[in-house]
Simulated assay, not measured.
Amino acid sequence: MSEPSSPQERGRAAEALARRHLEQQGLRLLAQNWLCRRGELDLIMLDGDTVVFVEVRYRRSATWGGALESIDARKQAKLILAARYFLQKESRWAQHLCRFDVVAISPDNTSTLQLDWIQNAFDT
């Protein structure tokens, strides 16, 4: 992924990279950038029978903490509320198991991108 100029472009490129990686691992996309009054869900995917809410985090630098460290308790609470709202609106998925994954993307020491996929990154 070359370095896009705006934060929005970087976010879209990171989400596209994460989506490709997860699809290569057998997950299927249900929704991307799903918006509601509770917030936004970057990727909603299906892993077998499990609905997976994926938060994609990209950090150009670890100066203020890396991509993983940026998902604090407040951010987790927002994701959980948005996921609950999704399951209310899209009731066909409400009876499925759910989990929250994080895909953290950051440059390594050689300026290539490191992608870390953390399954079950946090509990509800």
Rank of each mutant, 00 (worst) to 15 (best):
residue 1 M to P: 07
residue 2 S to P: 13
residue 4 P to I: 06
residue 5 S to R: 13
residue 7 P to W: 07
residue 10 R to S: 10
residue 10 R to I: 02
residue 11 G to S: 10
residue 13 A to T: 10
residue 13 A to Q: 11
residue 13 A to R: 05
residue 18 A to P: 02
residue 20 R to Y: 08
residue 20 R to Q: 13
residue 23 E to R: 06
residue 28 R to P: 03
residue 29 L to V: 07
residue 29 L to Y: 07
residue 30 L to D: 03
residue 31 A to L: 07
residue 32 Q to F: 02
residue 37 R to F: 06
residue 39 G to E: 03
residue 39 G to M: 04
residue 42 D to Y: 03
residue 42 D to C: 05
residue 43 L to A: 01
residue 45 M to P: 00
residue 45 M to L: 09
residue 47 D to E: 09
residue 48 G to T: 04
residue 53 F to Y: 04
residue 54 V to Y: 00
residue 54 V to N: 00
residue 59 R to M: 05
residue 59 R to G: 03
residue 61 S to I: 05
residue 65 G to V: 02
residue 66 G to D: 09
residue 72 D to T: 09
residue 75 K to V: 14
residue 76 Q to I: 05
residue 78 K to V: 13
residue 78 K to N: 15
residue 78 K to Q: 15
residue 80 I to Y: 09
residue 81 L to T: 13
residue 82 A to S: 15
residue 83 A to R: 05
residue 84 R to S: 15
residue 86 F to N: 05
residue 89 K to G: 13
residue 92 R to F: 13
residue 95 Q to I: 12
residue 96 H to M: 14
residue 97 L to Y: 13
residue 97 L to M: 13
residue 100 F to Q: 00
residue 101 D to M: 02
residue 101 D to E: 04
residue 102 V to F: 02
residue 102 V to W: 00
residue 104 A to K: 00
residue 105 I to M: 03
residue 105 I to T: 01
residue 106 S to V: 11
residue 107 P to F: 02
residue 108 D to F: 06
residue 111 S to M: 12
residue 111 S to V: 09
residue 114 Q to P: 03
residue 114 Q to A: 14
residue 116 D to R: 10
residue 120 N to Q: 11
residue 120 N to M: 06
residue 121 A to H: 03
residue 123 D to A: 11
residue 124 T to C: 11
residue 124 T to K: 11
residue 124 T to Y: 12
